[in-house]
Amino acid sequence: MQGRATGKSEAVYERLKEDIESLRLRPGAKLSEVQLGEELGASRTPVREAIRRLARDGLVDFVPGEVARVAPISLGGVHALFEFRMLLEPQAAASVATAGAADERVLVPFHDLLKRLEEFDESFRALDAAAQVRSYTKFYEVTEGFDQAVIAACRNPYLARTIRDLRSQTVRLRHLSHSRPRRMLTSLDEHRAMLKAITRGDAQAAEAAGRHHLAQTRQALIDSLTSQDLTLGRDVQVDLTG
């Protein structure tokens, strides 16, 4: 019985996590255990367990006197997250480049990713705007592959674990930062620069390229959060002082 409950909770957790990260469940959306249970064919216990896990991931908030809700996205939160990421991810990229310079086997997945990126870039630029939007998923597969490859190849286990633990937050924000095709094109160039630096074994260039990418992504997020055509929901707190 416990095994079945645990398995159901895991399935509910993965479904809700995917919906939150993809913004199908918008920031500020209320999460009713009863309603979610009916939609997902689950009892309240696995739904409650899944929501608690999502709260530990930072994707769900508990509001006193109300049901749980999808954690809001604020400018203050974006600034804090990217300040932290800039301490971690460029250093991880540099670590991987250094390891690759000493052992070429480390670089194999990065050479493969660079080839995939170049192929995607060529096909993406040939599409019209509507088709470009529909191809976002393929782009995310390449960038997610890059992030996971850096985590796997990073020689510092504490650094790798901390970056991995932030993935839920960064994946959700990724959909906002690439909300416009033009930003995707610049992000492609930024990932190309990071991949080329790593495959050359150039730690300094890899760190600089990683820092530049994060700075550009942060600005794209700020633009999305403050634009008039983006609706994050009535319950979202956009902290303009952060």
Rank of each mutant, 00 (worst) to 15 (best):
V142I: 15
R125W: 10
V133W: 11
F139W: 15
D112L: 02
A130F: 10
E118T: 13
E118P: 11
V133F: 04
Q132C: 11
F124V: 01
A126I: 02
L127G: 04
K138S: 11
L117F: 15
D147Y: 04
L113G: 03
R125D: 11
H111L: 14
R125N: 06
Y136A: 07
T143V: 04
A131C: 11
K115E: 14
T137S: 13
K115Q: 13
E122H: 08
S135G: 09
T143F: 06
L113E: 08
E118K: 10
Q148V: 01
F110G: 07
A131R: 15
A131N: 15
E141K: 07
L127C: 08
T143H: 02
F124P: 03
A129E: 14
D121N: 10
D121Y: 04
E122F: 02
S135T: 15
L127Q: 13
L117T: 11
K115W: 11
Y136W: 05
F146I: 05
G145D: 10
F110Y: 09
F146V: 12
T137M: 12
E119F: 06
K138T: 00
K115H: 14
R116I: 01
A129G: 01
V133D: 06
F146L: 06
A130R: 15
F120N: 05
F146S: 00
A131D: 15
A129P: 10
R134S: 15
K138R: 05
Q132R: 15
G145W: 04
T137Y: 09
F124D: 04
G145K: 00
D112N: 08
E122S: 14
L113T: 00
R134D: 15
E119L: 08
R116V: 02
S135C: 09
V142Q: 03
D147N: 03
L113R: 01
E141A: 03
D128G: 08
F124M: 01
V142S: 08
R134K: 10
D121L: 00
S135N: 06
V142D: 12
Q148F: 09
R134P: 00
A129M: 02
F146A: 05
R134T: 06
E144S: 02
Y140M: 11
V142K: 00
G145V: 09
Y140L: 12
Y136C: 02
K138Q: 09
A126N: 14
F110V: 11
S123M: 08
L127F: 01
A131Y: 08
F146K: 05
F110N: 10
V133R: 03
E141R: 00
F139R: 06
D128S: 07
V133E: 12
G145R: 04
A129W: 02
R116F: 01
L114F: 11
E141H: 08
H111C: 09
A130T: 14
A126E: 15
S135H: 12
A131S: 15
T137Q: 13
E144K: 01
L113D: 05
D128V: 01
T143L: 06
E118L: 10
T143R: 04
R125M: 01
T137N: 13
R116S: 12
E122N: 07
H111K: 13
A131Q: 15
D128R: 10
E122I: 04
R116K: 14
